[in-house]
Nucleic acid binder design. Structure first.
Lengths: 120, 120
DNA sequence: CTGTCAATCAACCATATGATTGAATGTAAA
DNA sequence: TTTACATTCAATCATATGGTTGATTGACAG
């Protein structure tokens, strides 16, 4: 098996790109939010959206390819659930900027307040 | 000033989309990495890349639009530095999945080990 | 002034993305 | 064994993205 450090790094880079790209779409983030509350069928995921079922199915596929969602087909339905392994890596990458977070901590505090207000 | 809760949420969503989209490109992540070590001119940022200066300039512009980089033009040069405020929001968003992190903590530990090995 | 140089603007191109509609697949129910 | 239903596949379309090259802007040096 040919697999050196450089190749690994490239794979990590690609994986990171796929995760961030998957998270860059509001529909996909909404799907992840709903899956955070429990497993759902494709049709259940699609229900609240105004776009077609096929479009939602494609979004789910993007999430699966990025490793954020696992799909398990039993019979004619397909259960989807979170698989947040790769999100670790994204979070870890973001954490490398933590020293800057400290410097601008007030900004974050303000934003957290706003977020709390919205959730009431 | 017309600005209701729904509009705010949409703005937050768009901002989050812009941040994640900006982070989804390996060149832009590399730029952020380098800026993490200090301020740099556009030409200095472009130097290690094989793509054209114009392409790098466009990448920087994407980072500026996402609010991750601030560009300050003095004379004919343009200093770039990190502005990680919006990264807070991305990190906070990711943290909503922290309960899943706990469940799969072993996976993260393994990945962190690999990361350490790479940095040696 | 005039030429040089950092950076951006502009036009263009190839490919990727997100959506649609219609057909196909395959399981469950009648 | 039909029929209905959940999901995916396929073809198509409009727009976004990332790259190129060439022209433009605007500050500094000779």
């Amino acid at each position: 098996m040919v697999d050196n450090k450089k190749t690994n790094t490239q794979n990590e880079e690609q994986e990171l790109s796929a995760v961030f790209a998957a998270l860059s779409d509001p529909v996909r983030r909404a799907i992840l939010n709903r899956l955070g509350e429990g497993e759902l069928l494709v049709s259940q995921i699609a229900q609240p959206f105004e776009i077609s079922l096929q479009a939602v199915s494609k979004h789910i596929h993007v999430l699966v390819k990025a490793g954020l969602v696992v799909q398990e087909r039993t019979g004619r339905v397909s259960l989807c659930r979170l698989d947040t392994g790769p999100i670790y890596k994204a979070a870890i990458w973001l954490n490398r900027y933590s020293k800057y977070w400290q410097a601008q901590f007030d900004t974050m505090a303000v934003w957290l307040d706003e977020l709390d207000k919205k959730r009431k």
